[in-house]
Simulated scan of single mutants.
Amino acid sequence: MTTQQSTPDRILDALERVLLHQGPGAATLEAVAADAGVSKGGLLYHFPTKEAMLAAMVRRLGARSDAELDAAVAGGTTVAEFYLQALDDDSFSDKPLYQSAIAALRGLDGRHEDVQTAMTEVLRGWDAGLQKEFDDPVDAEIVRLAGDGILLAALLDLPAPDPRLHAQVVARLLGRE
Protein backbone atom coordinates (compact mmCIF):
# COMPACT_ATOMS: atom_id res chain seq x y z
CA MET A 1 0.00 0.00 0.00
CA THR A 2 1.43 3.38 -1.00
CA THR A 3 0.91 6.50 0.99
CA GLN A 4 -0.54 9.38 -0.98
CA GLN A 5 1.14 12.69 -0.35
CA SER A 6 -1.01 15.58 0.85
CA THR A 7 -1.64 18.47 -1.51
CA PRO A 8 0.25 20.97 0.68
CA ASP A 9 3.28 18.65 0.71
CA ARG A 10 3.09 18.23 -3.09
CA ILE A 11 3.03 22.01 -3.42
CA LEU A 12 5.98 22.46 -1.06
CA ASP A 13 7.94 19.75 -2.87
CA ALA A 14 7.23 21.55 -6.15
CA LEU A 15 8.41 24.84 -4.64
CA GLU A 16 11.66 23.18 -3.58
CA ARG A 17 12.19 21.70 -7.06
CA VAL A 18 11.61 25.05 -8.74
CA LEU A 19 13.97 26.84 -6.34
CA LEU A 20 16.67 24.16 -6.74
CA HIS A 21 16.52 23.74 -10.50
CA GLN A 22 15.32 27.09 -11.81
CA GLY A 23 16.14 29.58 -9.07
CA PRO A 24 14.13 32.02 -7.00
CA GLY A 25 13.09 34.16 -9.97
CA ALA A 26 11.21 31.21 -11.44
CA ALA A 27 9.35 30.44 -8.20
CA THR A 28 6.07 32.02 -9.19
CA LEU A 29 2.73 30.79 -7.91
CA GLU A 30 1.88 29.67 -11.45
CA ALA A 31 5.13 27.72 -11.90
CA VAL A 32 4.82 26.00 -8.54
CA ALA A 33 1.16 25.13 -9.14
CA ALA A 34 2.00 23.65 -12.55
CA ASP A 35 4.89 21.61 -11.12
CA ALA A 36 2.66 20.35 -8.28
CA GLY A 37 -0.15 19.43 -10.68
CA VAL A 38 -2.68 21.74 -9.03
CA SER A 39 -4.51 24.83 -10.20
CA LYS A 40 -3.35 28.24 -9.02
CA GLY A 41 -6.62 28.45 -7.09
CA GLY A 42 -5.83 25.10 -5.44
CA LEU A 43 -2.43 26.38 -4.44
CA LEU A 44 -3.93 29.59 -3.05
CA TYR A 45 -6.43 27.55 -1.03
CA HIS A 46 -3.54 26.05 0.92
CA PHE A 47 -1.14 29.01 0.78
CA PRO A 48 -2.85 32.38 0.32
CA THR A 49 0.43 34.14 -0.59
CA LYS A 50 3.85 33.27 -1.91
CA GLU A 51 5.26 34.35 1.46
CA ALA A 52 2.96 31.90 3.27
CA MET A 53 4.10 29.11 0.96
CA LEU A 54 7.80 29.94 1.49
CA ALA A 55 7.34 30.16 5.26
CA ALA A 56 5.54 26.80 5.29
CA MET A 57 8.43 25.27 3.32
CA VAL A 58 10.93 26.58 5.88
CA ARG A 59 8.84 25.39 8.84
CA ARG A 60 8.57 21.95 7.23
CA LEU A 61 12.37 22.01 6.87
CA GLY A 62 12.63 22.68 10.61
CA ALA A 63 10.33 19.80 11.50
CA ARG A 64 12.17 17.44 9.15
CA SER A 65 15.58 18.47 10.42
CA ASP A 66 14.49 17.99 14.03
CA ALA A 67 13.25 14.49 13.22
CA GLU A 68 16.39 13.54 11.27
CA LEU A 69 18.67 14.95 13.95
CA ASP A 70 16.81 13.08 16.69
CA ALA A 71 17.13 9.84 14.71
CA ALA A 72 20.83 10.44 14.03
CA VAL A 73 21.57 11.20 17.68
CA ALA A 74 19.60 8.11 18.74
CA GLY A 75 21.85 6.14 16.36
CA GLY A 76 25.04 7.47 17.94
CA THR A 77 25.79 10.50 15.75
CA THR A 78 26.60 13.72 17.57
CA VAL A 79 24.86 16.99 16.74
CA ALA A 80 28.19 18.32 15.46
CA GLU A 81 28.74 15.31 13.18
CA PHE A 82 25.24 15.73 11.81
CA TYR A 83 25.78 19.44 11.18
CA LEU A 84 29.17 18.92 9.52
CA GLN A 85 28.07 16.34 6.95
CA ALA A 86 29.66 16.81 3.56
CA LEU A 87 27.39 17.67 0.66
CA ASP A 88 29.32 16.25 -2.25
CA ASP A 89 27.87 16.11 -5.75
CA ASP A 90 27.21 12.36 -5.53
CA SER A 91 25.36 12.36 -2.21
CA PHE A 92 23.45 15.65 -2.41
CA SER A 93 20.52 14.07 -4.24
CA ASP A 94 20.36 11.38 -1.56
CA LYS A 95 19.98 13.97 1.20
CA PRO A 96 16.49 15.44 0.89
CA LEU A 97 16.92 17.42 4.10
CA TYR A 98 19.85 19.32 2.64
CA GLN A 99 18.02 19.83 -0.65
CA SER A 100 15.22 21.37 1.40
CA ALA A 101 17.70 23.57 3.26
CA ILE A 102 19.27 24.81 0.04
CA ALA A 103 15.83 25.47 -1.48
CA ALA A 104 14.83 27.40 1.65
CA LEU A 105 17.99 29.48 1.56
CA ARG A 106 17.41 30.22 -2.14
CA GLY A 107 13.90 31.36 -1.27
CA LEU A 108 15.12 34.00 1.18
CA ASP A 109 15.23 37.49 -0.20
CA GLY A 110 15.02 39.53 2.98
CA ARG A 111 11.70 41.08 1.97
CA HIS A 112 9.38 38.51 3.53
CA GLU A 113 9.40 38.87 7.30
CA ASP A 114 7.50 35.60 7.95
CA VAL A 115 9.94 33.61 5.80
CA GLN A 116 12.95 35.27 7.43
CA THR A 117 11.48 34.59 10.89
CA ALA A 118 10.86 30.94 10.04
CA MET A 119 14.43 30.48 8.77
CA THR A 120 15.83 32.22 11.84
CA GLU A 121 13.86 29.83 14.07
CA VAL A 122 15.24 26.79 12.22
CA LEU A 123 18.84 28.01 12.38
CA ARG A 124 18.54 28.98 16.06
CA GLY A 125 17.27 25.48 16.77
CA TRP A 126 20.32 23.99 15.09
CA ASP A 127 22.56 26.36 17.05
CA ALA A 128 20.86 25.42 20.34
CA GLY A 129 21.65 21.75 19.71
CA LEU A 130 25.32 22.56 19.17
CA GLN A 131 25.42 24.78 22.28
CA LYS A 132 24.05 21.89 24.38
CA GLU A 133 26.60 19.47 22.99
CA PHE A 134 29.74 21.52 23.68
CA ASP A 135 31.02 22.68 27.06
CA ASP A 136 32.79 25.59 25.37
CA PRO A 137 30.48 27.96 23.47
CA VAL A 138 33.40 28.98 21.25
CA ASP A 139 33.79 25.39 20.04
CA ALA A 140 30.06 25.22 19.32
CA GLU A 141 30.26 28.46 17.36
CA ILE A 142 33.24 27.23 15.32
CA VAL A 143 31.30 24.09 14.36
CA ARG A 144 28.23 26.18 13.49
CA LEU A 145 30.28 28.48 11.28
CA ALA A 146 31.91 25.51 9.52
CA GLY A 147 28.49 23.92 8.97
CA ASP A 148 27.16 27.22 7.65
CA GLY A 149 30.05 27.25 5.20
CA ILE A 150 29.12 23.77 3.98
CA LEU A 151 25.57 24.96 3.33
CA LEU A 152 26.78 28.15 1.66
CA ALA A 153 29.04 26.17 -0.68
CA ALA A 154 26.09 23.98 -1.66
CA LEU A 155 23.88 27.05 -2.08
CA LEU A 156 26.39 28.60 -4.48
CA ASP A 157 27.01 25.30 -6.31
CA LEU A 158 30.69 25.39 -5.42
CA PRO A 159 32.74 22.22 -5.93
CA ALA A 160 32.50 19.74 -3.08
CA PRO A 161 35.54 19.51 -0.81
CA ASP A 162 37.89 16.58 -1.07
CA PRO A 163 36.25 13.89 1.11
CA ARG A 164 39.50 13.03 2.92
CA LEU A 165 40.25 16.67 3.69
CA HIS A 166 36.66 17.17 4.86
CA ALA A 167 36.99 14.17 7.19
CA GLN A 168 40.24 15.62 8.59
CA VAL A 169 38.55 18.98 9.20
CA VAL A 170 35.67 17.32 11.06
CA ALA A 171 38.09 15.20 13.10
CA ARG A 172 40.06 18.31 14.12
CA LEU A 173 36.93 20.32 14.96
CA LEU A 174 35.65 17.47 17.13
CA GLY A 175 39.05 16.86 18.79
CA ARG A 176 39.46 13.38 17.35
CA GLU A 177 42.86 13.65 15.72
Rank of each mutant, 00 (worst) to 15 (best):
D135K: 12
L69T: 14
D9K: 12
V169G: 06
A71I: 08
G37V: 01
A27Q: 06
V38A: 06
D109R: 03
P159A: 05
L97H: 07
A14N: 06
W126G: 15
A55F: 04
E121W: 00
D157E: 11
A154E: 07
L15G: 11
W126T: 13
A36W: 01
D148E: 13
R60F: 00
L151F: 12
S91T: 14
G25D: 14
S6W: 01
E68L: 12
F82E: 05
A146V: 13
M1D: 12
D35C: 13
D70H: 12
Y98P: 00
A56F: 08
G110V: 05
S100V: 01
D162I: 01
R17N: 08
V170L: 00
L69Y: 02
G147T: 00
A160I: 03
L20F: 10
K132Y: 00
L145E: 07
M57H: 15
D9H: 12
A140C: 01
R106Y: 07
G175H: 13
R164P: 00
S39Q: 04
A71D: 14
L29I: 14
G110T: 07
L145Q: 13
G75C: 01
Q168E: 15
L152E: 12
F82L: 06
V170P: 01
P161D: 09
V170Y: 00
Q4E: 15
G75F: 00
L12G: 03
S39I: 13
G125R: 04
R111L: 13
H46C: 03
E133D: 07
M53R: 11
P48F: 02
L97P: 02
L19G: 08
A26W: 05
P8T: 06
H166V: 03
Q116C: 12
V73H: 03
L15E: 10
L174S: 04
D157N: 14
A86N: 12
V143Y: 02
A86L: 09
L123R: 13
D114H: 04
L130A: 07
L43I: 08
A74S: 14
R111A: 15
L165M: 11
L69K: 02
Y98E: 14
A27E: 08
A72T: 06
L97D: 03
P163G: 03
F47R: 08
G125D: 09
T117W: 06
T28W: 04
H112Y: 08
R64K: 09
L156V: 09
T120F: 07
G25L: 10
S93V: 14
E113I: 12
E133G: 08
L44K: 09
E81Y: 05
A154D: 05
R164D: 15
A14P: 03
E51G: 14
L174Q: 05
A140D: 05
E141H: 11
F47W: 02
Q4D: 10
E177C: 06
R176F: 08
L108E: 11
A86F: 00
R144E: 03
L12N: 04
G149T: 04
G175P: 00
S65Q: 15
S93C: 02
P96S: 10
F92T: 01
A56L: 10
S93K: 12
L97N: 07
A103C: 11
L12D: 03
R172C: 02
G149E: 11
S91G: 10
G76F: 05
G62T: 07
A72G: 04
A72P: 02
R172K: 10
L108Q: 12
R176P: 00
D127C: 10
G129N: 12
V58A: 09
T2L: 11
L44I: 10
T78G: 09
L12V: 12
E113L: 15
